[in-house]
Design a protein around this nucleic acid. Structure first.
Lengths: 229, 229
DNA sequence: GATTAATTGTGTCTGCCGGACACAGTAATG
DNA sequence: CATTACTGTGTCCGGCAGACACAATTAATC
């Protein structure tokens, strides 16, 4: 699997020329996933948009799971370069860049769950994040954990604000608010704090990314100044 | 769907007695998911462990998606009662309780992704969380966003520390560290900060929950005292 | 008590999926 | 030219979600 993700396959000398490349296959998969969701990606479907049959794909990839992994690292791409920022601004733009990436390929939020081999692009994202904290005075473990909290927040914001075709029950933002409001109207006494919070909140939505980000960065700053002082 | 989750179905008078109940079906599904992962749950499989055939299940539930939703809310269960704690301890135990829940049913991390109708148990978890902040001086939206950050952290910690049978590429904790180490050994110059961080970290793992939690709570405390003072 | 209407369970069928495997074609090496 | 390594194809399998027609069961109605 590592060989696939990192492209460290020995290229064979003998035999017929391959009709396609792994990158082409992955790109077709990405296109389908972008347009119709991850569940629309099937070996049949990919082969149908390439000059090969379904079974030929298995010459390039051992199985669908591995193909999705390759698709994921490729779709993620490398992070944008943001040189010369102080750590707080660096982490802030890191979070926004990551969020943008997830919004371009929402299915990444499904395919990059769980402990799994890391590809070069995903690792570069981590490197970029950790680099922002390398002069902070935090220990290595703390730097890694900090990036983790940050990406967690971005990931979950993406996950909870997206509706995944096929797998989950489709629900628009309005449909969600409406059904929630209806429930709370009939069951208000069971959820008093929630009812109160939602009433005073009254659609000041989508500040979620900023709010959590500010709290996390504030917390980090507290630790960093404590370490330095 | 709301009717299914909240059990507000009118019970029919005429017709034969149902052989099973929705709760029984969901419990069988939960048992299978706990033992073999969410992908092992199929209508066939559930029916096989009940005195009915596969197609009979569709009398109780419109499709598999909805069944998984019912399973999820049922498996989540209500949060443990933790009365009388100050907000910081309340949120802390809230996070640990949530983490415990996810560890008991790791597939919940897969099935509760995306915008979806909320069941009574999930809503009770939210209520419990928001209640901890109802006297904090934060606005309703801020209370909701705070709980969101917290649960994000817990969710992602669970997601990244679990290997999901079937869907992702199986990898033990050691296998992960090993493959990562091997990559960084050959590509150290591409990932300098990451290499440095991992060297000074040197397996002080699994502090992730505490670290992020402390940073988030610190950040919240800063905001809360600013609001009050 | 007989009839009607609503409801549940069953069996059959379709179309899709991932993937195993044997086989034929192709290109470089000796 | 023969060998060897490799690629693409067609066929087949088991499993999946679900549509649909049909038989069996029960309560309400006449």
């Amino acid at each position: 699997m590592t060989e696939l993700l990192w492209g460290t396959q020995p290229t064979p000398s003998r035999g017929p020329k391959p009709a396609v490349t792994l990158a082409e296959i992955a790109e077709v998969g990405i296109r389908i996933a972008d347009a119709e969701g991850l569940d629309a990606v099937s070996m049949q479907r990919i082969a149908g948009e390439l000059p090969v049959t379904k079974m030929a794909l298995y010459r390039y990839v051992p199985g669908k799971t591995e193909l999705v992994a390759v698709m994921s690292d490729l779709a993620m791409g490398p992070p944008p370069e943001r040189p010369g920022l102080p750590w707080r601004e660096a982490l802030r733009t890191f979070a926004f860049d990551l969020y943008d990436g997830f919004m371009k390929h929402p299915w990444l939020l499904q395919s990059t769950i769980g402990r799994r081999p890391l590809g070069p692009n995903e690792l570069t994202w981590m490197e970029r994040g950790v680099a922002a904290l390398s002069d902070s005075g935090l220990t290595g473990a703390e730097q890694l954990d900090s990036i983790f909290v940050l990406t967690s927040h971005v990931r979950n914001l993406g996950q909870q604000s997206t509706t995944f075709p096929g797998r989950s029950i489709g629900l628009t933002e309005e449909g969600f608010s409406e059904s929630l409001g209806e429930i709370l109207r009939t069951e208000a006494e069971r959820f008093p704090s929630l009812t109160a919070a939602l009433q005073t909140s009254a659609d000041s939505r989508n500040q979620g990314l900023d709010f959590g980000l500010d709290r996390i960065l504030d917390g980090l700053e507290l630790l960093i100044t404590a370490r330095k002082g």
